[in-house]
Amino acid sequence: MEEENETTVTEFVLIGYSGRPKTRIGLLVFVTVVYSITVVGNGLIILVIASDPRLHNPMYFFLSNLSLLDIGYSTSSVPQSIANLLVDKPTMSYTMCYLQMSISVGLGVTECFLLAIMAYDRYIAISSPLHYTLIMSRKFCIQLAAGTWASGLFLGVIPIYTMPARFCKQNVIDHLTCELKAVLKLVCSDTSMNQLVMFLTGVLTLLAPFAFIIFSYLRIVVAILRIHSSGGRQKAFSTCASHLTVVTIFYGTAIFSYLRPQTKSTHELDKIISAFYGIVTPMLNPLIYTLRNQEVKGALKRLVGRKEN
């Protein structure tokens, strides 16, 4: 009987908003606009940093990595979401579903560690300004960046392919994309080990970097309070404000999404949180850094001025 009930799943049906044409049209417009802003905004930040020698320092090196991550993270799922919104019964092959899921998770894990590295960079810049260039050397920065990308592979991608999963006849995903939690809901084999691995990985990739960021900012606050001039304190805080805003948005949604108890059913809240985490957050990062960072705005103006001339 068990063999009769088991069939090889070759494709998944994504029914996130099937049967709701008005909702799909609204989402299609919204997602397309947000994705366009994400790619253009993050691409512009990479271009500005690469073209302006004044921004060739560790802080902006890591920022360009963050922008590249955001473009990759959005591109791994958003174009597929747009395509799925155009048809009544969107499908995706088993291989492509797992590929999309692993890329999204891998880049998400990479961003967790990259944000922690950026907090460390700000701590060194404020607490040891005279030794900053010596500590955060070009070689060391490249090693840190490479380490964050490698962490995404080993802690994000590899566990997905090593966790045993049997789907039997269930292949309908109540989501716009092959999102990890949505796919795990279809597994008919024992998922206790999968959920344990997912929880432990979440603790390691979310809570550990987040705790490091909090520790770094506590040290940053202490260092800022030691600065005698109010202008110096304000300048030091302004260099951290953008990063702190991004951290709050990113980790707030990620921790709420991945570390709370999972159920077999998909609620509307899960879709909203996933959409915000995967679609909106990558768009907010370039806006936050552009609006709050005078150096980036200045470099952008100089770049536009050169283009006009």
Rank of each mutant, 00 (worst) to 15 (best):
I173L: 00
T162N: 03
L14S: 01
E111D: 10
L269H: 09
Y17T: 12
G202Q: 07
V87A: 13
R219M: 06
R54H: 10
I103Y: 12
K139C: 01
V304Q: 07
T7C: 07
I135Y: 14
F62E: 15
C240I: 09
I227G: 02
L144N: 13
S229C: 08
S81G: 14
K22M: 08
V34I: 14
C178T: 01
A182C: 03
E111F: 12
P21E: 02
S242E: 00
L47T: 07
Y251I: 03
K181L: 08
T263L: 12
S74H: 09
S216R: 02
Y35P: 03
V280M: 13
A50C: 13
M193N: 02
F256P: 01
E111C: 12
S64L: 14
V246N: 04
E3A: 07
N65W: 13
R292C: 08
T7M: 05
V246I: 12
C97D: 00
Y251P: 01
G108Q: 15
P58A: 12
A254N: 08
I160M: 00
G252T: 12
D174G: 04
L186W: 08
E2W: 04
T133P: 12
K181I: 04
C188R: 02
Y217E: 02
S67V: 09
N309K: 07
L206S: 12
M96E: 14
E6I: 09
K139D: 00
V247N: 04
L144R: 10
V13H: 01
N65H: 11
